[in-house]
């Protein structure tokens, strides 16, 4: 029995109809098989010829991780269910379209980067705020080779979430140093991040809310 309902499949086909390019989606899974993530991605790939699905078993037992695009900079770690399904779907649809949905100010910011950005966004499937933060990070990564972004399902990666003190979602962590709580708007996040990076502060953890005027 398919995981996606007929209504969902119909709506997803509609979304996929706007894709112009083929997108490579790579699922890395543990040795015991691709599991629910493999089933979900298989159903998605069955709804369009614009997805080229690659499955890669990992020798290690670990939760699934999904990479969108051949560049490998847009990643989803965990099972894409609940609200996180929309985050993954948006990453695939974005990759299949030309152009970017980022604002000119964000494009200017990432165009001027002199150090690479590694963005992690911790999420849960029951968090309606989370896709906003995840999609923004993915779009920044898709727009520049200087940025990579992983949206991480915190419950499936408890050690990683614990190491980054995640007690609430969405939590965005940039370069293991700058962190933002909640779903900040694109303008607010990018302004705060650019100010924080320009401040020259060397603290181990810098809360981006301090840089919002």
């Amino acid at each position: 029995m398919p995981l996606l309902s007929e209504d969902d499949r119909k709506a997803i086909r509609q979304h996929f109809s706007t894709m112009e390019n083929t997108v490579e989606v790579t699922l890395t899974h543990s040795p015991d098989g691709p599991g629910d993530s493999g089933a979900i991605l298989g159903e998605l790939a069955g709804l369009t010829d614009r997805i080229r699905l690659v499955t890669a078993p990992s020798p290690e037992t670990a939760p699934p991780s999904i990479s969108v695009g051949e560049h490998g900079r847009v990643r989803f770690m965990g099972t894409p269910s609940g609200y996180e399904f929309s985050t993954l779907l948006t990453a695939i649809i974005d990759a299949g379209r030309s152009g970017t949905k980022l604002s000119p100010a964000t494009i200017e910011f990432i165009g001027g980067l002199r150090e690479e950005l590694n963005i992690m966004v911790f999420v849960t499937p029951t968090c309606p705020h989370c896709p906003g933060a995840g999609v923004l990070a993915h779009r920044m990564a898709a727009a520049s080779p200087m940025v990579s972004a992983s949206v991480i399902e915190a419950q499936e990666y408890p050690d990683l979430a614990g190491a980054h003190r995640v007690m609430g979602v969405p939590r965005t962590v940039v370069n293991e140093r700058y962190h933002a709580e909640g779903n900040m708007s694109e303008t607010v996040l990018v302004t705060a991040l650019s100010r924080a990076m320009a401040s020259g502060r060397a603290d181990a953890f810098i809360n981006l809310s301090e840089f919002i005027s």
Binding site: T124, H129, A154, M167, G168, E181
Partner: peptide
């Protein structure tokens, strides 16, 4: 309240209950 937002202070039980 602000200092611990996201580190124990939450406004969304639906989002954060699993922690």
């Amino acid at each position: 309240e602000d200092r611990y937002y996201g580190r124990g202070v939450s406004f969304c039980a639906t989002c954060d209950a699993p922690f």
